[in-house]
Design a protein around this nucleic acid. Structure first.
Lengths: 245, 245
DNA sequence: GAACTTCGTAAACACCGTTCACTGAGATCT
DNA sequence: AGATCTCAGTGAACGGTGTTTACGAAGTTC
């Protein structure tokens, strides 16, 4: 059956348990409550034992953030699974609403992953360079990619993007096209003008901005029910891309 | 001269010193380094003495956040002072760029004030209800108000705001009009349609979204120089409001 | 000057991250 | 099989933390 030795199985098991307890503490009592001693206590071991698994508390938090990203990606994939594969607009709604719902339901996790300075979460080593939130970013790129691949018509150019952005946007365009290609859907590079790429970055700005403001309670006035405002924003974002349904 | 007694003068002085040292620690070593004992050490006193001034570390952090908001408001007021009073567009640029510059120069303060869940920063008592960031919010409302008062033409209605938002937007419209009136500039309520109010909230979403993403390094791809992208966003926001210069 | 208020202290408690020498059980090799 | 090696986990310790408590020493008030 399992090729792994007994020791390896046990190790993997406690490693999972450690992260699970760390997650529990984060969710129920906030980041500062994620304490090596508290985790160890819940597991019935002593704190120094955790150093067999993580270099430091900071290292544990960093890996916890990775876990959270992976779980978020799983959640969003599940949201996507119940949407008709050919209805790209519905996919965008599903992912964006799923992101908001997840953030509101998991504010501590959201704060850890999406509102930590590199100084407080610790800086990733240059060789292990994958950005925190890689898994999550993948989902978004994929949906954005599908949106592009199925694009009915070129985005109406509302304003030319300034020259100084071209270099960065070219890079991002390459990333988007590669993501689409990796899904097996070849796409004509001509179908993705630079201002569409720009619009995608602006969409992320707005999506993230709304969700973070809601999670942190920093809207300029008390909003009774922010959900219609969110949906309205999504509709507008899609409309600006030429999707009118 | 000073009506205050010797004791009152000394108290006010050390209270200022405490917050100054707390601020230093926050800026130079992050939130977790803002330690009662470290503050006391810098001041040459002992940690329990701080309990004569603050109920707890959490209370101190909360008041520190208030200080930061006030200072940010002062900064932005200074940025505003060097702009022609009749050039509202320039005022918007000044405040928004000032906000971004401040956030990038003070990431720890930004994270504390604009990216803390109520759970981690502590919840305000219902009697002392002014939102964290009140001072800062004032500046924005004022500039938004001036923008309204000088509005050259009604915002072209790109899309009607959904019915479900009307109630909340009415409240916010009232706040905006009151803010303008408080500056001595009477304004016709008819000049501020609901979709303009909606657009102002969306502008805050985009401004906050861009700045937070930049501070936390969560843009989907590495951006060489985000400043042109920020300026481009501002130009677009203003253009959507009917300002073309 | 007596009574009262207030700032600051020292000691203590219960936590925390982290290091280190050590034990005992699983894995490996001969 | 037994010897050897690896490694998860321990207990003690160090220096740090927030917070409470009893107490002293000033400033203020009468």
């Amino acid at each position: 059956m399992t090729e792994a030795t007994r020791r390896e199985r046990l190790r993997a098991e406690t490693e999972r348990d450690i992260r699970r307890q760390a997650r529990n503490l984060l969710v129920s009592h906030g980041r500062d409550a994620v304490t090596l001693r508290a985790i160890a206590r819940e597991l019935g071991i002593t704190a120094p034992a955790l150093y067999r698994y993580y270099d430091s508390r900071e290292d544990l938090l960093r890996r916890l953030a990775d876990d959270i990203c992976t779980d978020l990606a799983t959640d969003l994939d599940a949201d996507l699974a119940v949407v008709p594969p050919d209805d790209v607009t519905a996919q965008v709604y599903a992912v964006c609403r799923g992101f908001r719902r997840w953030a509101l339901a998991h504010p501590q996790e959201f704060a850890l992953v999406f509102a930590s300075t590199e100084a407080t979460l610790g800086v990733c080593e240059p060789d292990h360079r994958h950005q925190v939130g890689d898994q999550f970013g993948r989902i978004f790129l994929e949906v954005a990619g599908r949106l592009i691949a199925s694009h009915p018509a070129p985005t109406p150019p509302p304003a030319d993007v300034p020259e100084s952005l071209h270099a960065d946007l070219e890079v991002f365009r390459r990333v988007l096209l590669d993501t689409v290609a990796a899904q097996g859907v070849p796409v004509d590079p001509e179908v993705l003008p630079l201002n569409a790429v720009y619009h995608i970055t602006q969409s992320w700005v707005r999506l993230y901005g709304h969700v973070a403001l809601e999670v942190f309670g920093r809207f300029p006035f008390a909003i009774g029910n922010p959900e219609p405002m969110f949906d309205s924003m999504l509709a507008q974002i899609l409309a600006e891309m030429g999707f009118t349904d």
